[in-house]
Write a protein that binds this DNA or RNA. Sequence first.
DNA 1: GAACTATATTCCGCAATGCGGAACAAAGTG
DNA 2: CACTTTGTTCCGCATTGCGGAATATAGTTC
Lengths: 261, 261
Amino acid sequence: MSFTPQEDESKDRLFVEALARGLRVLSAFRPGESALSNQVLAQRTGLPKSTVSRLTYTLTKLGYLSQDADSGYYRLGLAVLALGSAVLGSYDIRRVAAPLMRDFALKHTISVSLGMRDGSDIVYLETCRSQARVSVQLSVGSRVPLASTAIGRACYSSLGAAERELADMDMAARYGKDWPLVQAKLEQARQQVLQRGYSESFGEFERDVMAVGVALPSPAPGQGSLCLNASGPAFAFDADTMRNQVAPALLQLARQIVPGA
Amino acid sequence: MSFTPQEDESKDRLFVEALARGLRVLSAFRPGESALSNQVLAQRTGLPKSTVSRLTYTLTKLGYLSQDADSGYYRLGLAVLALGSAVLGSYDIRRVAAPLMRDFALKHTISVSLGMRDGSDIVYLETCRSQARVSVQLSVGSRVPLASTAIGRACYSSLGAAERELADMDMAARYGKDWPLVQAKLEQARQQVLQRGYSESFGEFERDVMAVGVALPSPAPGQGSLCLNASGPAFAFDADTMRNQVAPALLQLARQIVPGA
DNA sequence: GAACTATATTCCGCAATGCGGAACAAAGTG
DNA sequence: CACTTTGTTCCGCATTGCGGAATATAGTTC
């Protein structure tokens, strides 16, 4: 697959290749996959067998991979989890937001998520679902596109000119020839946010899911930009309800979470 | 703290040092810490400044670190979160256990956690708290010692002879001269588990926290060993209640989660 | 604003370190 | 038992990463 992507090229004397390769191995594990063979890793990463072997050996020794006793396949080790939880722990906004989000979810019987922009994605930092049973908070850490989701559009619309430009470039690369269309849509969403304060995505990202999004005023610009969404199934929420009931409440929630502003 | 643990030493031609160092940088972030300077990283990892600089450069470029705009400090990047969530996603037991645990927590107004052994620690894979408000699931990914917690003791007691020996060695190294005492305590706990099926830790790990633990029968031996605990504040749970009410219910919960066995 | 810290980045020659093709092992398959 | 498929080890080569020292940048103090 990917022909060695040393795009920057060559003389980046600061870039530590071996580290990058090791992380490439770790990130070859897609969520939901349990165990991968050494060979599959070689394929996915595009690295030669012997190199992968050395890397898995190293990662295993450090606890970032663990080897299944009989199959010999590798799974992500618990050391990785520790890192992940350190990330979550470092965002203290979660501590503030989570209980408020929980209340919101219960009160409106709707799911609500807190996200942060990373390039042209939104990464979920916290999720509260209305139906207590379903889904094990698995969505924390997962990514949704900036362009087609309510939460992404809200975030995009809150960017300053400079940052927006960067995000645009990111997406231009990502969407290729579709970019003009995507951009038009984004611009439209941005106008809506400027006027009404929230963004919508009614069935555009996932069929039959209605969502609205709002941005949190970012404490420091240039910092990660935070945003919220509220989403529910189309059979339970129509566009009117989302616009007139949910969206104002979500704006209110945002104000609760970040009192200043 | 840990004086460079290059125990094996020297001629391990397979071990990729640069990768290990990079990961050492990532794991220098303790949960709850937001941003670290390059220098602090150098201190904590014991690596020379220029090396750290190169590593942070690389990690930043890959999204595993992100640099605060003005301070220049580094924080863990969102790419790390993706890895972490991939780990959680790979343990399908969570999907089964979580709703049952939630019900349990509500019914008994007590906290319950699912853990897995990693060396002489237990790593939490899932936590359900009784009081909906408090604490944002932050404990997923955190570590507690095998020796002094109910959940750890339950897990220890369920190990086969071979694995127990390994764990013993781990702890002997960890506790040094205290190990005989710790071992005696563990052996005592093991006897209790053999007789009654559960372990206790009443105020031993955290003051004023009462906990009982049980092991889940591991699907494949040699695989990670899973275990449960239930814990609550001492003012609300006395030893009798824990033993006669909570412990049996927890055993029942274990049976629900892993029907076979 | 000059002199001084403290911290981060960059340079650069050296050689240790990681590389990867190929040989070797091991385990599964017809 | 030949044959395939997957994983590990070897080993010489040169690339890659190393780290001390020099340089840049910022923040303090007088």
